[in-house]
Design a protein around this nucleic acid. Structure first.
Lengths: 258, 258
DNA sequence: CGTATGCTTGAATCACGTCAACTGATGTGG
DNA sequence: CCACATCAGTTGACGTGATTCAAGCATACG
């Protein structure tokens, strides 16, 4: 199911020839220009991952964290005696994927690339230096991990209290909203490189039923997934069906709703 | 359902005559003695709450955070057009209940006391002072919020991927484990002041089905809830049924397993 | 080519929700 | 003190949403 290739040091490569520039990316907009100017130069390495690559493994000590530049990445909990693992979070471009490992040292889940992905590396010792000198930056990074926590809470609510149809509608609404922030603009069509099995792992619905639910959403003129493209047919209807309210995402300007 | 009484300032009372002493409480054991010595004196006020009291409300700006000293408190997401709200987290004595509100300013959920509870108040301006002077303490508090996040992820897994029987078994295993840390010792009987409806809200199973599931657990010699007491009949069996592994709780010494 | 993967669909089954009736404990007011 | 209401929990009967099993189809790939 996964490539079983836990990120060897060899896959970390220098960032040249393309340095980090576009801070106008997704949740990084929570940082001020100055803060970004301090953080970006510290990320001098890159990682490229193919689908199903395990970027970090549950329980293993981590000495760096990763900022997702491009692609989609899941936090995945493998379950004994079950063929599929459960996704407990999804990360979009502009998200720190395992910043949680900075204070905690170890993570309780795997990090897996779902699509071809590009990430920037920041070493924890470097980060310690930076944050010791800059209380404000530390506060912002803390906030970013707490937004993750807020999203976790939303997933708990969604996957415990809603039924399949609303769950998938809500999930796709979140996908739409977070992609909007990641791309910097609202679109009606997104390349959706994840499979129905991925949606199943994220929503706790079997993949067979995900297929049926997507058909229902299509017939209901909410959205349609065709040839690897998610088309938002009627955003309002989709959000209503999924009882979706984006305030838990704590969007940065100019997407702010809270 | 709830008292609808959002904590008025009037309910904050001075901590006298009993100052905070027992740092040997639950997750506060993550702090060093010195760190506790710095933090404790800053909490000069107390709150007492009856069951169903709303301690803080979703979306409202918060100027203080609360440390739970005694009782049980839930993070609750109200749902439009539904009679019950969903619990996305539970807090035990020794937990900071809304430390998330310190960096985020607003929360995305309500905080509700489930049992008669006692809490210590820490003002955010005071906390800012403290943390600006003490990078290490800031790091520890950050960690504590990330343990919350890890628990959220576990709840996502549990409530999306497990069925009613395992879900409730897992929930009660977590209850047992966290109570052990909160009390400082392992017990086979706990006063369980929460109702089956609360368990239902936390696990996403209807309360009728919770009742049946608890009967099954009793007949299976795992645990029994009688007259407000949770009796652990066979901890191993209970944990096995719930596929429970406590590593996600990041227990402090001397309970550490990670 | 053959094989693997993603998706779709149908039919059978089952876990769980819903509705409803009943119990026992607790509390309140006349 | 009794009548009555309320709330937590239990149990049975029934309905249904979702899983499971299975077959089939399209596309991609070595």
């Amino acid at each position: 199911m996964t490539n079983e290739t836990t990120l060897p040091d060899a896959t970390l490569r220098p960032a040249s020839p393309h340095p980090l520039s576009p801070r106008q990316m997704g949740m990084m907009r929570h940082l001020s220009d100055q803060q970004w100017a301090r953080l970006a130069p510290a990320m001098t390495e890159r990682v490229t991952a193919l689908p199903d690559t395990v970027l970090s493994t549950r329980g293993k000590k981590l000495e760096y964290s990763l900022l997702l530049l491009d692609g989609l990445v899941a936090r995945s909990v493998p379950r004994a005696d079950h063929d599929r693992s459960t996704f407990v979070a999804l990360q979009f471009p502009g998200d720190f994927v395992d910043l949680h490992a900075f204070p905690l040292k170890k993570l309780d889940h795997d990090i897996v690339a779902l699509t071809p992905s590009e990430l920037a590396v920041i070493r924890h010792d470097k980060l310690t230096e930076l944050l010791n000198d800059d209380v404000e930056l530390a506060r912002v990074l803390w906030s970013l991990t707490l937004v993750d926590a807020a999203i976790h809470r939303h997933w708990v609510m969604r996957n415990s209290a809603m039924r399949a149809f609303g769950r998938v509608a809500n999930f796709l609404s979140e996908f739409d909203a977070r992609m909007t922030v990641a791309l910097g603009e609202e679109r009606d069509r997104y390349p959706l490189a994840i499979t129905q099995a991925d949606i199943a792992d994220a929503t706790g619905v079997t993949k067979v039923h995900v297929s049926r639910t997507l058909r229902d959403l299509r017939e209901d003129q909410c959205c349609a997934i065709r040839n690897g493209t998610l088309e938002i047919i009627c955003r309002d209807r989709l959000r209503k069906r999924g009882e979706f309210d984006d305030s838990y995402l704590y969007f940065p300007e100019p997407f702010k709703t809270v």
